[in-house]
Computed example of a mutant assay.
Amino acid sequence: MTNDFEKVFDTAAEPQDYTGEDGLLYCGSCRTPKEAYFPADKAALFGRDRHPAECDCQRAKRLEREAAEQRRKHLDTVEDLKRRGFTDSKMREWTFANDNGKCPQMGMAHSYVERWEQMKEGNHGLLLWGKVGTGKSYFAGCIANALMEQEIPVRMTNFALILNDLAASFEGRNEYIDRLCRYPLLIIDDFGMERGTEYGLEQVYNVIDSRYRSGKPLIVTTNHTPDMLENPQDTAHARIYDRLIEMCSPVCFTAKNFRKEAAKAKLDRLKELLK
């Protein structure tokens, strides 16, 4: 036991190490001490006058190892968040880094992420509306990716998938909705494209209303205009739309249809190749 105890105070010396004028062992590489003296009262307690200490190069290596471990843990956490948060792996590519610069509203997405704590505290949601292919989903995906890369959980899904999940687990639907509402940010993509059955509308309202009562932000993308939302066709839709309008500030997307532009560019490249 005594030998084991003494090993704690033994300093590993390298061939290039040397003893300084103060009697301590110094690192031959960085020229800083690998030992330090105990205070007088501690020396009497341990029966030794010195203990091992980190020299500068040892400290640098330790900090490098710790930083690498932190990076690894961070990447693992982000990977897990994106696996759980996205319903389609393609959404991982919807990032600020991959933005083509053609969406004039993208600055708002940057601001939303930069001011996330204020957005969360004030329960500020967004209603992204406009024609098909104008960049609404990409805008929302950029926010989701950026927040998840800060280790903030986000769920991006759509009501077609939500309704399928609820139908498959009828008995646990309240727990399912509760899980959705625990995410700091919930993003519902392509709102209004799901089937408008009585059951479907009731479940859509349950999700929207539960999110409303959770006090957490909601981002919704839709092809519906604010006028359509303010003038619902029936009471079932009115209940849903009232909640959305109260929770989410509208942002209009008026850019050209990026999907059509991409399809045309791809067709032009193919024609060029086939000449």
Rank of each mutant, 00 (worst) to 15 (best):
Glu175His: 11
Leu186Asn: 08
Gly196Ala: 11
Ile187Asp: 07
Gln203Leu: 01
Leu185Ala: 02
Tyr183Met: 13
Val204Arg: 04
Tyr199Gly: 01
Asp189Lys: 05
Cys181Ile: 05
Pro184Arg: 03
Ile187Glu: 06
Leu180Trp: 06
Gly196Pro: 07
Val204Cys: 13
Met193His: 05
Val204Asp: 05
Phe170Lys: 15
Phe170Val: 11
Leu201Cys: 01
Ile177Asp: 00
Glu171Gly: 01
Glu194Cys: 03
Glu202Cys: 03
Phe170His: 13
Arg173Ser: 02
Tyr176Pro: 03
Asp178Arg: 14
Met193Tyr: 08
Tyr183Lys: 07
Glu171Phe: 01
Leu185Asp: 01
Glu198Gln: 11
Arg182Ile: 05
Met193Asp: 11
Glu171Ala: 15
Pro184Tyr: 07
Gln203Cys: 01
Tyr199Cys: 02
Glu198Ser: 13
Tyr205Ser: 01
Tyr205Glu: 05
Glu175Gln: 15
Gly172Glu: 12
Leu180Phe: 13
Ile177Glu: 00
Phe191Gly: 08
Ile187Met: 06
Glu198His: 06
Tyr176Lys: 11
Phe191Val: 08
Gly192Pro: 11
Glu198Leu: 06
Ile188Thr: 05
Glu202Phe: 08
Tyr176Leu: 14
Arg179Glu: 15
Leu186Ser: 08
Pro184Ile: 10
Leu186Cys: 07
Val204Gly: 05
Val204Asn: 03
Val204Ile: 13
Tyr183Gly: 02
Leu185Thr: 04
Cys181Arg: 05
Glu202Leu: 09
Glu171Asn: 11
Glu171Met: 11
Leu186Pro: 11
Gly200Ala: 10
Ile188Lys: 01
Cys181Trp: 00
Arg195Met: 10
Arg173Val: 00
Met193Lys: 14
Phe191Ser: 10
Tyr183Glu: 10
Glu194Gln: 14
Glu202His: 10
Asp178Thr: 12
Tyr176Met: 14
Asn174Asp: 15
Leu185Ile: 04
Ile187Tyr: 09
Gln203Asn: 09
Tyr183Asn: 12
Ile187Thr: 07
Gly192Thr: 07
Tyr183Leu: 11
Asp189Leu: 04
Pro184Cys: 09
Glu202Pro: 04
Arg173His: 04
Tyr205Asp: 04
Ile187Cys: 08
